[in-house]
Design a protein around this nucleic acid. Sequence first.
RNA 1: GGACGAGUGGCGGAACUGGCAGACGCAUACGGCUUAGGACCGUAUGGCUUUUAGCCGUGAGAGUUCGAAUCUCUCCUCGUCCACCA
Length: 848
Amino acid sequence: MKKSQSNYRPWEIEPKWQKTWEKKPLFKTVDPPAGGKKYYALVEFPYPSGEGLHIGHAFTMTIQDIFTRKKRMEGLNVLNPMGWDAFGLPTENYAIKTGIHPAVATKKNTDQFQQQMKRLAFAYNWDREVNTTDPDYYRWTQWIFIQFFKHGLAYKAETPVGWCPACKIILANEEIVAGKCERCGAEAERRMQSQWLLRITAYADRLAEELDLVDYPDYVKAAQRNWIGRTEGVTIGYPVVGKNLTISCYSTRPDTNFGATFVVIAPEHPLVLKLTTQENIGKVRQYIEKAKKKSELERTEFKKEKTGVFTGNYALNRLTGKKMPIWVADFVVLTAGTGIVVGVPAHDERDWHFAKRYDLEIIPVVKPADSGGKWDFAKSPFTDIDKAEVFNSDFLNGLPALKAKEKIINFLVKKGWGKRAVNYHLRDWIFSRQHYWGEPIPMIYCPACAKKGISWWDTKEGKNFKPLFSPKKTGLRRQMAGWFPVNESELPVRLPEVKKYKPTDTGESPLANIREWVEVACPECASGARRETDTMPNWAGSSWYFLRYIDPKNNQALADPKKLKYWMPVDLYLGGAEHTTLHLLYSRFWHKFLNDIKAVPGKEPYAARRQHGVILGEDGFRMSKSHGNVIAPEKVVKKFGADTLRLYLMFMGPYDATMPWSTKGVEGCWRFLNRVWKLVVKHSQEKTAGKNHDLARIMHQTIKKVTEDIEELKFNTAIASIMEFINELMKQPSLPKKTLEILVLLLAPFAPFMAEELWCEVLGNKYSVHQQPWPKYDSKLVKGEIVTIIVQVNGKLRGQVQLPSNQTSKQPEVEKRAKKEANVTRHLEDKKIKKVIFIPRKLINFVV
RNA sequence: GGACGAGUGGCGGAACUGGCAGACGCAUACGGCUUAGGACCGUAUGGCUUUUAGCCGUGAGAGUUCGAAUCUCUCCUCGUCCACCA
C-alpha cells in the first residue's frame, strides 16, 4: 500500500483525473453509419449568467451525468451534449450598465461555466458545444424564421404590450414582475404595438393530440393541454340596433343565450368608438384612457370589482328580440375569443358581478336538474352545465343543458345567425423584442412595394412556392405587403456594433439608431427599404438547439438529414418544471413545423421527458441572495470534493422532489465515501477468499437494484443499496478482488473520480474504470436459497418461517410449518380456521 | 377561482403490482478505541403497556378487502403552475 492511499484525499485525486480525462478522452460519440445503438440524452442548456453554476445546475446535470455514464458502460452510443442559451436580458442589462459588449461578457461566463462543469466531472460532448449567440448558430435560427414566414406562419400585427412609462421601453412579459417594471419598479402600463407573431395556434390541435405519442409525466401533458385550452362553441352574430353592423361573440354556453341581457366589448377593440353614441363618447374615451394606464396586475386581479361604461348603443338578440345594451369593460380581454362578450348574468360568475354592479337585468334560463330546480339567483349565478335543465327558453325548454347546447348551435347555424367555432386559450406567439441582445429578425420592409400591395408571394420566387398555410386564405398576402425575407444566401443577418444598448425612447430596438445597418435596398424593387429592427425572444434559439448538437458545424443545412435520422428523437429530455408550457410547447411547435417542411424527421422532438425537483436552502426556503441561504457548489467541492457533492445531491431524495439542503447530510456522504475508500484499500492486496454464498447473493441483489434504479432515475435508493452492500462488506474478514471491483464499478457513475483512483491506482487495473462494461447480475443468485414466509392470523403478523426456496410454492407444506410456529399456534388455539390465503414465496394468512 | 401534485419517526426519506411500515442517511443515547476528539468502530432508537409478548400507529373520517401508507368517497392542510379565456 502506498502511503498516499491511507486516506481519501479528493482534493488531490480529483484534479489529477480531470487532467487525464482531458488528455485521454473516455467516451467517443460516433456519427452514422458507425456507432450501433444510439442514445440521445438531453439536458436543458443553461443561460450563462455572471453568477456561475448554481446548485440547481449541479443537481440536474449530475442526474444526467450518472444516467449517461451508465448508458455508456452498457455499450450504447451516447450523445450527451451541452451548450449555451446566451441571448438574454441580464447580459444586455450588464452591457447597458458597464458598456462591455454582451458577446465579451458571454464568452467570459461560458468559460467559467465550462470549467465548473468539468470540475464536477460532467462528461459532455464538448466538441459539439453550441451557443445561440454565435452567428453560425443564429444563421439557422433566422433561416427557420424565414421558413415560418414563407409558409404563412409569421406575421406582423398590432398587439397589446407592456410599457414602462419611466424607462420608456416596451416590456417583455418576463420583464414585468408582479405588474412592475423589473428594472425600475414603476407600474407597467399597456399600449398597442406592431409586433411579429408566430401562428402557433395553427398547430394547437396537433400539439395537444400528439402528446399521446410521447412519454412525459402526466402533469406535464395535463398542463400543456390545459395551456392550449381548446373549447368548442359558437360565434353568434348580434345586429347593432340602428346601424348596418353586426358584432359577434364567442360562447361555449349558447344553451343560456335566451338569458343574454347585455354585451361587453374590450376597451382596446377597434370597434369601440364606432359603437359609441355621440353623447357617450366623452365618458367612453375617458374610460379607455384609464384602462390603458391600469397595470396588468390591477386589471387582472381576482375578485376586483368590475368597472365599465355604457356606449349608448344596443345589440339585438334575435332569439328573444331583446335590445341588449353594449358596454365597454376592461374585464374583457381583447385577444380572447372575438374581444366582445355577450353577458348572461344568471349563468356566469363575471357577468353576474357586472350586472349587479350596474343594475343590469338578470334572466334565469337554466336551473339545477335535481333538488327541485331551486336556485337563488339574487345570491349567485348558476353555472353548472352537467346537471342542469333549460327553461324559459322557447324550443329548448325542458332539455338538459348539454343537449340544449347542441340543439341551439344547429339552430343558429341553420338560421345563419351563428357559426360553429373552436377557441384556444393558447394565443399566437409574440415573437418581437425591442432589445439589442437577440437574433435580428431577418426581414426587410419596403414602403414602395407596400404601397403597390406587393407581397413576397407575388415575387418570382414566391409564386413558385407552395406554402403550408395559404397566405391568401389567412389574409397575410395583403397584410404583409412590402415585407420580404432577407435572401437566404445572405444569412446570417449579424448584430451590428452599437454604442448604446438601451432601447430607444420611442420603444424601438437600439438597432433602429444604426442607419447604415437599417437602410437597405428592397430585394424586390431595389428602392429604399428598412431592415426589421426587432430581435427575437429568448425562446427562439432554444426552440431547436437539440437539432444543432447533432451536426453543429454544418454550413449547408441546420443539420445533415442522415445524422438527424440516426439521432432523433431525443431519448430522454431532462429539465425543470418552469419550462412545462413555454419552452416545451414552443420547441415541439418548431419541430412539427420543420417536420412538415421535411427539414427534420419525426413528429415529436422528445420521446421522453422528465422534470427535476428543486433544492431549497438549509432553512427550508427557496435559495436566494436576499435570504442568505445560497449553497455554492464550488464551496462544497473545496471542502469535500466533487464526488461527495454528486453523491449527496443524488442521495437527498427523489430526483423530482423539493428538498431542503442539509450540511449534515453532506457529511454523511463524505463519511460513506471514506468507508468505501478504506475498505477497498484494506482488502486490495488480498489473494484468496473462499466462496461465500450470502455475499454473492447480496452482491447480485445490489447490482440488480442499482441497475434498475438508475434506469428509473431513482438514485437515492440506488445509493442506499450500495450503502447496505458496504455495511455487509465491512463485516467480512476478507474479500475477493472481484467483489471490490464490482463495488467500484457500481460507484463509478456516482463518484467518477474516486472510482477511477480505486480502479487504477489501488486495485491496479487498466485505465479506465469508465470504459468497463456495466456489471451484470445472475438472477438465480439474486433469489437466494432460503426464503422467509410471513405468517399472519386475520391479516396480522404473528410470525415467520424460513424454508428452502423449492418448498415455498406448495401450500400444504408451508401451512404445516407455519402452524408449528409457537406464536402462531397460540393465536390459532380454540379457533376455527375459516379460510387460508396463500401467496407463494411470500405469505400465508389464516382467517379465523 | 382552476389544473396538477403531496401529507409516513426528532429530520431527509424507503416500502416493486394491495402482503413484514419506517430501508438508507442524519440526529440522539450508551459503549469501545484514544493523551484528546466534533475522528473512527460497535449497539440501541415510532409511541404506549403488565416487555419470551401485546396494543396503537402512515393528515382526519368513512368504505372495499382475509389483508390498505398504497384502492374508493368526504373533508383538512401544504406545495407548484395558471388565472376575469366568455
